[in-house]
């Protein structure tokens, strides 16, 4: 479509729209980005622009055993969540798509439910359950809970990809003697790999970023980074959080770039 605007309207008559657009984009991006230069400040009270550049708060972060342990717990939980949630989500999406059962609708709703249910209710429910199972303050419990929250993203992404995929290709492979499993691994999986990758990335981020559930079920030795950050923010404004935030923004940008490079390019390219 050469003229995507549809309406013949002179660009100068839309200046207000462009100006408003720029303002909203700045509102979306600037507040987060501004934390990065501020984190290199030296004072207890962070300023922009920083009076004096230093790595004080980065040293404070790296020098603290508590922050380091919390980071380690969060990373471990995020990797484990990704490794468990991705295959579970792919299996469920494939099973649901291929079997075309009458119950499919019900199962789909059940699997997407963790995205819709109020997170605070989910959190106290899991806390209540774990108190009886002795899973509170354990990494295992944390990973199981995060899997439930991350799996729907994998499921939705992969199911969307399967809906746009011609299952006959797999049927051809099976008619030529491949088992269903071999046909899936060699024919289907390579073609939906971008969506699987996007789903895995979302699972990783979901776990790394999750705060409310972690607030209830992770503590002591198994406290996550987000839990410690939340407490540090609620009780006082600890400048160390600025350094951690900057590092997390770096991680986000890296993952976003990875997602743009390896993610579902097919779908992105199809948008008119």
């Amino acid at each position: 479509m050469a003229d995507s605007a549809g309406v013949p309207i002179a660009p100068w008559r839309r200046l207000w729209l462009y100006a408003l657009g720029v303002a909203i984009v700045l509102f979306l991006v600037l507040p987060t980005v501004i934390v990065v230069p501020m984190s290199f400040g030296n004072a207890r009270f962070l300023r922009f622009p920083p009076q004096e550049l230093s790595l004080r708060w980065y040293h404070a972060y790296l020098g603290s055993i508590e922050w380091r342990d919390a980071t380690w717990i969060s990373l471990k939980a995020a990797v484990a969540t990704m490794l468990v949630a991705t295959p579970l989500g792919v299996m469920a999406a494939y099973g649901l798509h291929a079997s075309r059962l009458r119950m499919a609708r019900l199962i789909e709703t059940a699997l997407i439910a963790p995205l819709i249910l109020p997170l605070i209710l989910v959190s106290i429910a899991i806390f209540f359950l774990y108190a009886r199972l002795g899973l509170n303050n354990t990494v295992t419990g944390l990973v199981l809970a995060h899997c439930c929250l991350a799996m729907p993203f994998v499921f939705v992404t992969v199911l969307a990809a399967l809906k746009g995929y011609d299952m006959n290709q797999e049927r051809v492979a099976r008619s030529l003697g491949a088992s269903r499993f071999v046909a899936f691994i060699t024919i289907t999986l390579p073609q939906i790999r971008f969506s699987v990758f996007s789903g895995a990335l979302l699972a990783f981020i979901t776990s790394l970023d999750e705060t409310v559930v972690a607030l209830f079920i992770s503590g002591g030795d198994a406290a996550t980074l987000t839990r410690r950050m939340f407490t540090a923010l609620r009780d006082e404004i600890d400048p160390t959080v600025a350094a951690i935030s900057s590092l997390l923004i770096g991680v986000t940008l890296t993952l976003l770039a990875l997602g743009l490079v390896f993610g579902d390019r097919r779908r992105a390219g199809r948008q008119p």
Partner: peptide, 14 residues
């Protein structure tokens, strides 16, 4: 998408 992917706590802190 950038704020969407950035940690909720980071944005709240900002």
């Amino acid at each position: 998408l950038f704020p969407f992917w950035t940690s909720l706590l980071v944005r709240t802190y900002a």
